[in-house]
Structure formats: C-alpha cells, structure tokens
Amino acid sequence: MVVHGEQVRVAAVFEPGKRIRPVWFERHRRQHKVLETTYSWRDQVGDTTLLHFTVSDGEALFELVYNPHEGNWILKDEPLAL
C-alpha cells in the first residue's frame, strides 16, 4: 500500500468509540502541535483501511494518514494550505 509522503512520529489519543485524535506530529525535526482536526475520513485500499486526518497547527494545514494494518503514520507530501 503506497501513500505518498513521509513516515512521521505522531502522538494520538485513541478515545472510546474508535475515535482517534492526533495531538502532535513531527516534521523536519520540529514538533507541530495539532490545534484542530478540521476533517477526517476513511479510505479503503485493497483490504487496508486508511484513516485520513486534516489537521492544523495554526500556521498550516496538513494531512496525516494512519494505517492501522501497519501501525504507522504518513504525513502527506506538502502542507495543504498556508
């Protein structure tokens, strides 16, 4: 399963009711605090469900993708907007 972007460290809270809330992520050795998750959605690629989170650190918008099958987080290519 290929998602274009870089694998990143993410801190997330797995809340009751299968809700996942990203708290911070690292990019270029800088920690970005997630101030708002503006949208989330899921995507099925083959038998893998990918969870997409559009998050804002107050400066830019980013898309984080969680792959529960592989247990990793991908930060999609570039900030979505500035």
Binding site: E36, T38, Y39, T54, S56, L61, L80, A81
Partner: peptide, 9 residues
Amino acid sequence: SVEQQTDPE
C-alpha cells in the same frame, strides 16, 4: 462544503 470544512481558510 466538504472542502470548506476541511480547510477553514
């Protein structure tokens, strides 16, 4: 509307 929700800007 989905895009406006995704990007508050």
